[in-house]
């Protein structure tokens, strides 16, 4: 939308919309404003030259995390579908269907088991592209499944979080995922297994206020928004603009909530080092 599309009648608008180039051939970096060629992104791990870490889904995350991108997927048990019979303008079940078609996944969580520099690890990825990564019953079950798998196989758990918060369409059943996932974290703790949280953009609301802040180690991707209440809600409450960088990964590091902000290109190595120490892996040297 620009000033022209606001002025022009609907028919005329189409003339000015360029349809001759495929969508997203070029992507505008939100950090620097420069145009980045889409085809170049995979080789840059979806990080723009200016350092903006783009949101990525489970497939790329597993590929960037595991040795040779190899892993085994762990299935997540089904959960009750729409117990509230929720609808706003659309039915919740229709929104779910649309998200499933769009992402090819059942819900927000995907579990992969593979090696990170030889350390066998369970990795859980929360996909923001699926209904804003929202924490509902399926996400809760995904988290519990991943933690149980880790406990059963004596493996560490790493989660890459990303969520706008709770899934409102599941009401209080969504809220109950905060204690449910916390119980799963406790199971890892009782088994003396490492639980590492990598906070990705954005991690907010009930997700931050439960399993995302209960890790043994908290890493974060540069620039990620990490908060309980979102900036808009706070600005409405205090009626003033928040400073630049407020609630970003670097800010949380400064405030003592995050151990390290780690660039995507260094994430694998950082995780491998932490895992090998915590799991007391025997090294050649």
């Amino acid at each position: 939308m620009n000033w022209l599309s606001k002025l022009a009648p609907p028919g005329v608008k189409n003339i000015f919309t360029k349809k001759d180039t495929p969508d997203n051939l070029w992507i505008k970096c939100p950090k620097s404003g420069e145009m980045v060629f889409s085809a170049d992104l995979p080789s840059m791990l979806h990080v723009t030259p200016a350092g903006h870490h783009m949101r990525i889904g489970p497939e790329l995350r597993f590929q960037y995390t595991f040795d040779d991108g190899e892993y085994t997927a762990v299935p997540i048990p089904a959960v009750a579908l729409d117990p509230l019979k929720f609808r706003d303008d659309k039915k919740y079940t229709d929104r779910l269907k649309a998200a499933r078609t769009k992402t090819g996944d059942d819900d927000v969580m995907s579990i992969g088991v593979g090696n990170i520099h030889g350390n066998q690890t369970v990795v859980l990825v929360q996909n923001f592209a699926f209904m804003g990564g929202s924490l509902g019953m399926a996400a809760g079950e995904g988290f519990i499944t991943a933690a149980n798998y880790a406990v059963d196989h004596n493996l560490p758990l790493i989660i890459f979080t990303a969520a706008g918060g709770a899934r409102m369409q599941e009401g209080a059943l969504s809220l109950m995922q905060m204690p449910r996932t916390t119980i799963a974290v406790q199971a890892l703790r009782d088994a003396s297994l490492p639980y590492i949280v990598v906070l990705c953009d954005p991690t907010t609301g009930g997700v931050t206020a439960s399993y995302a802040m209960l890790g043994d180690i908290h890493l974060a991707e540069p620039g990620a928004l990490i908060c309980f209440a979102g900036p808009r809600v706070i600005e409405e409450t205090i009626r003033e603009k928040l400073p630049q960088g407020f609630q970003r990964a670097e800010f949380l590091e400064e405030k003592g909530m995050v151990d390290r902000v780690v660039a995507r290109k260094d994430m694998r190595e950082t995780l491998a080092n932490i895992l090998s120490v915590l799991m007391k892996t025997q090294t050649a040297a």
């Binding site: 916390t182 931050t208 439960s210 995302a212 209960l214």
Partner: peptide, 26 residues
Amino acid sequence: GAFPGRGAEERGQAEAIARSIDKGLS
């Protein structure tokens, strides 16, 4: 709800809630 304020966020509202849930369950 928990207070959505600037100081609350700076001092780790999310972590404080998470720890309280954690303690209450155990």
